[in-house]
Structures are given as structure tokens and as C-alpha cells.
């Protein structure tokens, strides 16, 4: 799996897959880490395609945040579904991420 990736205004924008689960989490984590380490550390994760995520998927996003913060950057999340938002709220991850309805707003928040 290669995560969809593009750069806009020096912000790396990464789209996660339809399902981010134990079966594909290790590869996604490796891909995301590579994108972050080769970029500015400012990352938007677009969740518009992501309908289901388990705790392994949550770990991918947290690992991305750790990598970004090591570079004095951050990870913004965009287009999160209600069900994934509920998972973030249950696990309190909504307290450590900035979550945006729209990808453009998530990118602009780095300006």
C-alpha cells in the first residue's frame, strides 16, 4: 500500500485508506512516517475515504503525530466521519489533534 500523498503550501497532505486496521496498519505507519520525515513536519491527514479504523489504525495516526512533533510540526485531521470521531472521543485522542471539517481549513491553519 502506498498512501495517497501530495504537498500544498509546504504542507504534506496524506489520505488514509477506506479501512485502516491491523492488517494494513504497519504498512500505513511506515508510509506515513516516511512522508513526514521527508517533508516539513506539517501534515494534514485526510480521512474522507476512511470509513473504519480500529486501535491499530489509531496507533498509525498517533505515530504520525509523534513523528511530526519531533520535527516541531503537527498533524491536522480533516473530513473525519461521525463514527471515527466517536472513536477519537472515546480514546480521548480528540484532545491532542486539531480536527477540521475541511482539508483546506486544515492546511490554512498551518499558515
Amino acid at each position: 500500500m502506498k498512501l495517497e500523498h501530495r504537498t500544498e503550501n509546504n504542507v504534506d497532505i496524506v489520505a488514509l485508506p477506506n479501512r485502516l486496521v491491523m492488517a494494513n496498519a504497519a504498512e500505513a505507519r511506515s508510509d506515513l512516517k516516511q512522508v513526514i520525515q521527508q517533508g516539513s513536519g506539517r501534515v494534514v491527514i485526510n480521512l474522507s475515504q476512511t470509513e473504519f479504523m480500529d486501535s491499530s489504525g489509531l496507533a498509525v495516526v498517533v505515530a504520525g503525530l509523534q513523528a511530526a512533533r519531533k520535527m516541531n510540526g503537527d498533524v491536522h485531521l480533516a473530513h473525519m466521519s461521525d463514527t471515527i470521531r466517536a472513536l477519537f472521543e472515546l480514546t480521548r485522542l480528540h484532545t491532542v489533534f486539531q480536527i477540521f471539517d475541511d482539508e483546506a481549513d486544515a492546511v490554512a491553519a498551518f499558515a
Binding site: 496507533a59 498517533v62 509523534q66 472515546l90 480521548r92 485522542l93
Partner: peptide, 18 residues
């Protein structure tokens, strides 16, 4: 029991129990 928010494991049983 909830995992530390920056942990990269330990959330499975929280999700099950919820």
C-alpha cells in the same frame, strides 16, 4: 483503563468494554 493519549497501543480493551 484508557491508555495514555500518546500511546501507540493499549486501546483495544477500552473499545471492547465501551
Amino acid at each position: 483503563t484508557p491508555a495514555d493519549v500518546m500511546a501507540t497501543s493499549g486501546r483495544g480493551w477500552q473499545i471492547i468494554r465501551a
